[in-house]
Design a protein around this nucleic acid. Structure first.
Lengths: 189, 189
DNA sequence: GTCTATAGCTTGATAGAC
DNA sequence: GTCTATCAAGCTATAGAC
């Protein structure tokens, strides 16, 4: 052929959905075949490193999008409160109001892939750092407090996603988003 | 023989550790064999339902212990603040100060086991209800607010455990424990 | 109650034709 | 770039001896 049956983006979107909701071990190649419409050999043609390369590629892409589409907003000029509101809105959308799981959680159970593990850790820390920098610069919080507030904000979001997945209740996740201004801008003790 | 090589409790403790940190799909029988010191056939003699029965048994036992050793404390007589402090202390111990993962998170990725899923959901809701009842009875909070506060408290704990697993930072989890009095007893708006 | 041995399927991964 | 066909290794699960 020489012609792609599905675009790189289509395949990666499918892979992202699978890894998000089944984790690394739960995302078998047969599942991937069904979901992508590609046979094993075709998948290995695109990802020579096999399943691990798929996971790493997905992590990198999602982390990149997360940083540029949603965390970058925090550093732009303009009213801080408005930027944070917009960030919350995109967070809600990114996680499907809580219906979509977080790769940082579901993709890090497998201990056998240091590559995935390291990327998840880096992405999580960049997320927290972005929140902390915002709390410092726009919220006027001292550095140490800003970090703690940022950690707790991300923690609330991740916890909300766990509750949502296990019990189907999306309220805690949505409240975690609504609490962002309180967490990152309220003057601190 | 007719004699147990390892006690039921020993085996279940090992299984609990495995499921906690590898999830359902990540906990293979070969891993279980190595960790328990029992061969496949012996495991199937003890758990006729195979791996799923192991997971369900682990969930039931851990949820039972969690309820009786740690949530029951909230309903006992005596100073509420002191009871909550003690509960927090046991929570910290239960999760190894954040080093140990939560089964409700790591065991619920596998969609193929409704039995495990249902038990996790029930356990999570009982946990939240216990917190809410405490906030209502001892904190004097109105029912709806008590529920929201309880959800957010559990969410903070679960999120802290995710952060801890991914980045190794246990501070958010420990702060989530320290924040329990503030969350469940502070008079609310 | 534990063991050896094995069944049968699924896994991740390749080779080679088109 | 996708396909069919195939691989060894891994998996869950079972049979039967002791």
């Amino acid at each position: 052929m020489g012609l792609q049956k599905f675009s790189e983006n289509e395949v990666l979107n499918t892979l992202t959905g699978l890894f998000r909701h089944h984790g690394y071990d739960g995302t078998s190649l047969s599942l991937i075949m069904k979901a992508t419409g590609l046979v094993k050999a075709s998948l290995y043609h695109r990802f020579r490193g096999g399943k691990e390369e798929m996971a790493v590629t997905v992590m990198d892409r999602v982390a990149g999008e997360f940083a540029s589409d949603l965390l970058a907003l925090l550093n732009e000029p303009g009213d801080p409160a408005e930027r944070l509101r917009k960030t919350g809105e995109r967070l809600r959308k990114f996680y499907g109001s809580g219906k979509k799981a977080c790769l940082l959680d579901t993709l890090t159970l497998n201990r056998d892939s240091p590559a995935v593990q390291a990327r998840a850790k880096a992405a999580l820390e960049f997320w927290i750092d972005s929140f902390a920098r915002f709390a410092e610069d726009s919220g006027g919080l001292p550095r140490v407090l800003a970090m703690a507030r940022a950690q707790d904000a991300v923690s609330a979001l991740e916890g909300g996603l766990v509750i949502s997945r296990v019990s189907g209740n999306r309220a805690p996740f949505l409240r975690a988003i609504e609490s962002l201004p309180e967490r990152l801008m309220r003057p601190g003790r």
